[in-house]
């Protein structure tokens, strides 16, 4: 495989964070311990553990966690010999206080995430994370919603605050391969720090887009084992690793162990198959934040309307990540409009 970067590729397994959406934030400590232990044994580089919406995300807006994420972070740190534990922080939801707490419990990497056009809200958190001595990466979410020049401008802001890498985060799983290529190349050419890529599989492009990103020079790569991430999940980690191995890229992660972990540990945990159903397909098609899926399905049932109509309407209104309250609002509005029509 030809890569436009000679830096090593580092994989972050996100099933214990992005997968928290699918688990409706009901991860038990035993589940987290087992997954973290087996990932560590397989040689995973980083394991992200947090509420699906990042530190402090346990809310009525996003769903309450069964177990306090700090307990889960502590448990994962306890299980890991070599893998590093990462956390996610969305300014506006979590604060530097939760970040400090996670750091004290042993989290050593943080991804500070903002909407693709709002990087300047992350300055405070990025500089604090650096002060704490954490590896600190920027995460520009919903990357499909902004033109590449805007993405570059915002990534540069994060770099200026001290981020050591910036991710193109395809939160809606809406990016097409050509767009990934363009965005990663633009960031690689404009930044002196590493570039990362986080995919969602809503259009069945997660692995393909991730390969494109790697070819273009992305070195920080996310995956979720068995696609255990919001919507249709992320780049399926064990598949991605197998493909990379076939392409001659060995990352030091044991593929058989990852397959076993997927089959024996994660598979039985997942409440329903992480296939691309019509809901997750619509996420990618309409460009809607992947964690909206289950909320939209529930709202659809509650108000007796097709969850696809809710998602499409949210896409039209250019709703951004974190606006889960809009789902109920739009569903109630659509239901009312239907009644008026009858």
């Amino acid at each position: 495989m030809k890569r436009k970067s000679d830096k090593p590729i580092k994989i972050t397994e996100v099933c214990l964070r992005d997968g928290s959406h699918v688990m409706q934030h009901q991860y038990t400590e035993a589940q987290v311990r087992r997954v973290a232990r087996e990932l560590d044994e397989a040689g995973m580089h980083y394991i992200e553990v947090s509420h699906g919406d990042g530190l402090g995300g346990s809310t009525l807006q996003y769903g309450k966690s069964l177990v306090d994420e700090m307990k889960l972070i502590e448990a994962a740190v306890d299980e890991c010999q070599n893998s590093k534990v990462a956390v996610l922080l969305l300014p506006g939801i979590g604060t530097v206080h939760e970040l400090k707490q996670a750091h004290e419990l042993g989290a050593s990497l943080v991804r500070v995430a903002t909407h693709v056009t709002e990087a300047d809200v992350s300055a405070q958190h990025i500089s604090m994370a650096r002060e704490l001595g954490m590896e600190t990466l920027g995460f520009l979410m919903m990357a499909h919603m902004a033109p590449t020049e805007k993405l570059v401008e915002q990534a540069k802001l994060m770099e200026s605050y001290g981020a050591q890498a910036v991710y193109v985060t395809d939160s809606a799983g809406a990016l097409l391969p050509q767009e990934v290529k363009e965005k990663i190349a633009a960031l690689r050419n404009s930044l002196s720090i590493e570039v990362g890529f986080h995919a969602h599989n809503n259009l069945s492009l997660a692995v393909a887009n991730t390969l494109t990103a790697i070819e273009e020079g992305a070195t920080r790569i996310d995956g979720s084992i068995r696609c255990l991430g919001a919507g249709a999940g992320n780049a399926q980690t064990e598949v991605l690793l197998s493909v990379l191995d076939r392409m001659g890229v060995n990352l030091g992660i044991d593929i058989y162990k990852m397959m076993d972990l997927a089959e024996n540990t994660v598979g039985p945990m997942i409440p329903r198959a992480q296939e691309i159903n019509r809901g997750s397909l619509v996420l990618g098609y309409a460009g809607v934040y992947s964690s909206f899926l289950l909320h939209a399905e529930r709202a659809g049932q509650r108000f007796g309307i097709d969850s696809r109509d809710i998602l499409i309407e949210l896409g039209k209104r250019k709703v951004v990540g974190g606006q889960e309250d809009m789902i109920l609002d739009v569903a109630a509005e659509l239901a009312k409009a239907r009644k008026l029509e009858v």
């Binding site: 809310t59 506006g92 939801i93 909407h115 709002e118 709703v319 951004v320 974190g322």
Partner: peptide
């Protein structure tokens, strides 16, 4: 209590 803030660029 708990407060969240979201910026929307639409």
């Amino acid at each position: 209590g708990k407060a969240l803030i979201i910026l929307n660029p639409a």
